[in-house]
């Protein structure tokens, strides 16, 4: 390389560098306001929540604000609170059944609808309806179905001469009735996720399975499902996190009852904070919930490779 060429290249390199620097600054400017706002609307409140969880705050009693004299009181209370323990158990049951059923039904329907056909495509749209309804409307729909005087299901049972209990006021059936409504609302999501994944399954590996003499169900079980395993995991995790947030259905259908049969942890925290104004205790319960959902979110980030360098 001659000196003259090197001298000419230097300004060009400098210019490119300047451009890159400007560009970096521009990108930072694009990002900074959003991060600032996001910090203000999400991080600060969470810090406030954690701080509150160390106080016995009851807004109706000013002396309890910013009173850190016994910081761990709420957390200790939680350990001995039978209703809190019960709410975790109810939560576990609700999550297990809703996620399990939604996965099974979602996968089943997806396999059924995974054919290239105009009509099935149109039908797919119909299946979307439950999950795009506002949750509160889903609640109203099921409230109607579970109310004996006006429910077509009850009329059918009556016509058949069967006597059935009102599910939402029965200790045995209250939780299953929530599970049923929630499954109805959300199985379309898992169905769609699985459908999307199914379309990425290459024909070749199916052909290969067929050549090896596998039947359809064998090919599905041993070839297709393992291939879309990743999606299934993510779908399950999403439903799991969402099941922790369950609120409108419980609020409308059972109010956590009868007794505490359908009182999940999130609902219990809501009652403590906004019905009885034990905000400090409710904050502590919520901190536990946030920790759990953070852990699950982290799993999702890892599984989808969002965070990792490409």
């Amino acid at each position: 390389m001659s000196l003259a060429v090197a001298a000419a290249a230097r300004p060009r390199a400098a210019k490119r560098e300047r451009l890159a620097r400007q560009r970096r600054r521009f990108l930072v400017w694009c990002l900074a306001p959003t991060l600032g706002v996001l910090m203000a609307v999400t991080l600060l409140p969470i810090l406030y929540l954690v701080a509150t969880s160390f106080t016995p705050l009851d807004p109706t009693n000013p002396a309890t604000a910013w009173n850190f004299s016994r910081p761990l009181l709420n957390y200790r209370l939680m350990l001995s609170d039978g209703r809190f323990g019960n709410s975790l158990w109810v939560q576990a049951k609700l999550s297990f059944w809703t996620v399990g059923l939604q996965m099974l039904i979602g996968i089943g329907f997806a396999l059924l609808l995974n054919l290239r056909s105009g009509m099935l495509k149109a039908l797919r749209t119909l299946f979307l309806v439950p999950m795009v309804l506002p949750p509160i409307v889903v609640g109203i729909i099921w409230k109607v179905l579970y109310t004996p005087d006006i429910s077509p299901a009850f009329w059918a049972f009556k016509a058949l001469g069967w006597k059935v209990a009102t599910p939402i006021t029965s200790a045995t059936w209250a939780l299953p009735s929530i599970i049923l409504a929630d499954t109805w609302e959300w199985f379309p999501l898992t169905m769609l996720m699985v459908l999307a994944a199914l379309q990425t399954v290459p024909e070749e590996i199916l052909d290969a399975a067929r050549v090896d003499g596998a039947r359809i169900w064998q090919a599905t079980l041993y070839v297709v499902l393992p291939y879309v395993r990743g999606t299934l995991m993510v779908a399950g995790l999403f439903r799991l996190i969402d099941s922790i947030k369950a609120f409108p259905l419980i609020y409308l259908l059972t109010d956590g009852g009868p007794g505490s049969v359908t009182e999940v942890t999130n609902y219990y925290a809501f009652e403590q904070a906004f019905n009885f104004s034990y905000v400090g205790y409710a904050s502590a319960i919520t901190v536990v919930l946030v920790t759990v959902s953070l852990a699950l979110s982290w799993l999702i980030v890892r599984l989808t490779g969002w965070g990792a360098d490409e």
């Binding site: 109310t147 005087d149 009850f154 209990a165 009102t166 006021t169 009868p258």
Partner: peptide, 8 residues
């Protein structure tokens, strides 16, 4: 003695 669903 309540009608169906009285608890709700």
């Amino acid at each position: 003695y309540g009608p169906p669903g009285v608890l709700s």
